[in-house]
Amino acid sequence: MNTLVVSMPPHLKTKRTTKHIMLDVVIALLPATVMGCVLFGLSALLTIAISVVAAVLSEYVYALLSHRVWKDHAYAKRFWKEFDFTSVVTGLLLALVIPASVPWYYPLLGSIFAIVVVKMLFGGTGKNIVNPAIAGRIFLFIGLAAVPSCRAAIIGTVFSAAPEVGNDIFTGATPLTNFLNPDFGASITQSNLTDLFFGFGVAGCIGETCKAALLLGYIYLVVRKVIKFWQPLLYIGVTGLFAVCLNGFDFSAFLPSILSGGLFLGAIFMATDYVTSPKSDLGNVIYYVALGLITAGLRKATGIEVVSFAIMLMNIIVPLIDTYVPRRAFGYRRQRKEVK
């Protein structure tokens, strides 16, 4: 019996599949995860664990229910064999953008919402319109905003930046919130900036405080060619420069505005999400510049951290960018319009 396989060319294919790329993203997130656990302790680890497990399990359960194969072991086996780690990335990212002090059921609810509503109901991997982790965070932020402790935990009020061990919401206000407070602006010093960069003594979400760890992840992603090096830089740079403009061309505002809040995490790991970013290079330039402008502008206008809102907003606009930004073929020449 002839066992030759027949298919369309090309017969060579890259070994880097979706699974490898997603594993690379998980690896790139590890420094930030570890630093989050170091800075915020056991509760951070617990939040991360709950979030990741909830994300993976909700994808699994959704797949079982939607295929009506509750007791089919063959299907379960195939599911785990084809498991592409996108839900691990979603769960991990979600945990990194919520504070460690939240109750245990926050990451659980957020993960389930992100996976089931934002990803699976839209058609699974590659079909979601907005980034699931961002949507999960915003769901927690808006959906649970009525709970006072949550509101304080996630967006923060004007709050002392010094962590107090034993306080339930010690990861309260991000330095951004403080920075936007007029009293705080004057107190930015060199040592503040170093703390902001390494995340020591800075309040905020689990993954976003240590910029050094995030930069390590950025370098890894660029080296592994998961993202293009200029994409996060463009976002961060435009945000910083526009913040400078909005603050009356005061260049001392540049570093604090890019180092505070979730900008690094959002720019490196969330805005660059393949599914919800434009396909062409020109489209990407528009996308990242718009992200930067929206982030800096809304921060100035609202006084709260808006990176996640900016990204979600631009995610929704991405199909428009893809539709209206043309790509010229190699050798394209503009057709002269015939004179009538």
């Binding site: 590659g126 079909k127 393949y274 434009p278 396909k279 062409s280």
Partner: peptide, 11 residues
């Protein structure tokens, strides 16, 4: 597997 819209094909 499902398309991720990564844009590598266009690159």
């Amino acid at each position: 597997t499902p398309c991720l819209n990564c844009g590598k094909c266009a690159d």
